[in-house]
């Protein structure tokens, strides 16, 4: 009993406390073994082993399940579920450019999670300088999961698609490798498997569009917002490995985003206070990734070396 208690109280413990296969779950009253649920108080006191936890079902409802049963609570995810997305969610990311110091740990963590070789970057940290007199800044660029995605518009076989939860997914069992989406994406986010990728040594149960390892010869891949993690109530790899707490991830429906240290904040407040903007708003792609401008940076911009375009030199 005490473990659950201490766990929740331990710094970022509330984040860790989520059960493996639930979207949102939290242990109920702990300290002395007493348990009172004031409003919905029908939950009977339970023993240590049969404590009730709250689990989000895959159709977006919160249910009470005995903890002993939760371990086996692994909903089957069908092809249709994957194309629809996680019910009731609208995923959103906020990247705080004032905090990002370009360490590149997000890229490394992402590559590790998705078994990508070092020459592929789903989240790329660019060094940006908008004009010579302006100060440079680091610019992590994941897929923007646009609400008006130019890539899904042009896909001839519905291999890349917009999900209800905002994610733009790729079904590598469907992709024909025409690379029209790559031409259509104005942010150069999409990558192509020009040769046979090195496969990790495990078999995945979910449909291809939610595979952890997405690389397939002759198919396109890109940042997928880690839906397999979100289904378990966990943050994407780039967020949980950003030591600067520069990346926030959350659900716009809930109006909340969470960062590396577990801090959860109101999305609308964060966007308002930080004067958030979206990259190249004028393109009308309506990204689901917001940026907070690079004000009061904590690092020296003098050390930054900007790789210039050939034509700019």
């Amino acid at each position: 009993m005490a473990c659950g208690n201490n766990c929740t109280c331990n710094g970022d413990g509330s984040r860790r406390n989520f059960l493996k296969n639930s979207i949102a779950a939290l242990t109920t009253g702990l300290a002395g073994g007493a348990l009172i649920d004031a409003f919905a108080s029908c939950n009977p006191p339970t023993t240590k082993n049969d404590e009730l936890v709250h689990v989000m079902t895959h159709d977006g409802k919160m249910v009470s399940v005995a903890r002993s049963q939760v371990a086996d609570f692994k909903p089957h995810i069908s092809d249709e579920d994957v194309r629809r997305g996680i019910p009731g969610k609208k995923f959103v990311m906020v990247i705080d450019l004032s905090k990002c110091d370009g360490c590149g740990k997000c890229t490394k963590a992402c590559n590790k999670m998705h078994y990508l070789p070092s020459n592929k970057e789903w989240i790329e940290v660019l060094e940006m300088q908008d004009s010579p007199k302006e100060a440079p800044y680091y610019f992590p660029k994941p897929c923007f999961h646009c609400d008006n995605p130019p890539c899904t518009k042009v896909c001839p076989v519905d291999a890349t698609f917009k999900r209800e939860d905002g994610i733009v997914g790729i079904d590598t069992d469907r992709c024909i490798g025409c690379r029209f989406c790559m031409a259509a994406c104005p942010y150069s986010v999409r990558l192509f498997n020009w040769t046979e990728p090195v496969k990790p040594d495990f078999i995945e149960q979910t449909p291809a569009a939610e595979h952890v390892f997405q690389s397939k010869k002759g198919c396109v891949e890109k940042c997928d917002f880690c839906p397999h993690m979100a289904r378990e109530g966990k943050l994407p790899a780039c967020v949980t490995n950003c030591p600067m707490n520069a990346i926030w991830f959350g659900d716009a429906n809930e109006d909340a985003v969470t960062c590396f240290d577990g801090t959860t904040t109101k999305l609308s407040q964060l966007l308002e206070d930080g004067a958030a903007y979206r990259f190249m708003e004028e393109l009308g792609t309506e990204p689901r990734v917001y940026y907070l401008p690079p004000v009061n940076r904590t690092y020296s911009t003098k050390d930054m070396k900007i790789e210039k375009k050939e034509a700019e030199k």
């Binding site: 208690n5 201490n6 929740t8 109280c9 939290l26 242990t27 109920t28 009253g29 702990l30 300290a31 002395g32 009172i36 649920d37 004031a38 409003f39 919905a40 709250h54 159709d59 977006g60 409802k61 919160m62 629809r84 019910p87 009731g88 917009k162 999900r163 209800e164 429906n253």
Partner: peptide, 22 residues
């Protein structure tokens, strides 16, 4: 007192739909 955490569920009117088809 010892560290503790208690939870209660509020029924709000502000629910969002499970599905908002594209």
């Amino acid at each position: 007192i010892n560290d503790t955490i208690f939870r209660a569920t509020i029924k709000t009117k502000l629910s969002f739909p499970a599905h908002t088809p594209v």
